[in-house]
Design a binder for these strands. Structure first.
Lengths: 150, 150
DNA sequence: ATTTTTTTATTGTAAATACAACAAAATTGA
DNA sequence: TCAATTTTGTTGTATTTACAATAAAAAAAT
């Protein structure tokens, strides 16, 4: 058995740790960059979808997003057509932060992929996407309270 | 720019979340499976190395490991040749837990890799290993207080 | 039309996580 | 040799994270 997920876990934790350290200069605390970058890229997104995208618990996302709002990076807007949801938008401060978020993120990808050819990168990307779809399936299944049997 | 790390982050969080839910039946709390499985596989390991392997902060590892000890899954043994270190070993209870940890982990890999050919799996594994080595370099650099420029 | 289910969001609580600061042993180097 | 540096480990504190429970709006089903 190839221990793919162990490698992936190491890479993800290392990268997350680096980003958390680096984004302190923007006064973003742990994990917040994950939400802010996506809200800037897809303004109007709702919190529930964001949690699904990122793969964190809904309540974790709720609190991270509330803190982003509190600190003036984003705002929640009520929707006249649907009184249940609150759409998320970056504020001017959020927009200002975005270029650095993006630059850091690109740099990390580039650094992670150092030594790989364009073709290898393409291959890796495609394979990871397929893995991600598989894991998403299990995640939703287990998160809803179902039991995998193994 | 191919957003490899974003895919990797999604996969890692989803998988970690699944494992945390599944290992509650062993009375392992969040994250503990990461440490226990490695201690079972490499008995005698010290906490500092384990933190490096997993890519978590040293103090996080320290507390997770202490809790594993407190709950009887592992023991710390002093080394007569080096009074500074404490080597980590699974107890009988830890050993008992291992097969399930391993089975779950294998199942997750298998599930994540569903639909990929043997060759694709091999390719993915090799590429990920290279990415991991790159990220390790940056992680150690940043963790020691150095600044990446981007 | 109205009951049932799903979606979306919130809050209380317990626990993990990381940083800072500290300490002691081991290693390096001058 | 012994001073400086590195390695390894711990504790205090602030913050994030996730689960459980709750609520309300929307959507689906009867």
């Amino acid at each position: 058995m190839r221990e793919i997920l162990r490698e992936i876990g190491m890479i993800a934790r290392a990268f997350d740790s680096i980003s958390n350290i680096e984004f302190k200069e923007l006064e973003l605390t742990k994990g917040q960059y994950l939400y802010l970058i996506r809200i800037c890229e897809q303004p109007g997104l709702i919190q529930e979808k964001l949690a699904e995208m990122i793969k964190v618990d809904r309540t974790t996302a709720a609190r991270a997003i509330s803190k982003l709002e509190l600190n003036g990076f984003i705002e929640k807007r009520s929707d006249p057509d649907n009184r249940k949801i609150r759409k998320l938008y970056p504020t001017a401060k959020g927009e200002e932060a975005y270029p650095l978020l993006k630059r850091e993120s690109d740099y990390s990808d580039q650094s992670a992929l150092e030594g790989l050819s364009g073709e290898e990168i393409e291959t890796l990307h495609k394979l990871l996407k397929r893995v991600r779809l598989n894991v998403e399936r299990d995640w939703e299944y287990v998160k809803k309270g179902n039991k995998r049997s193994y």
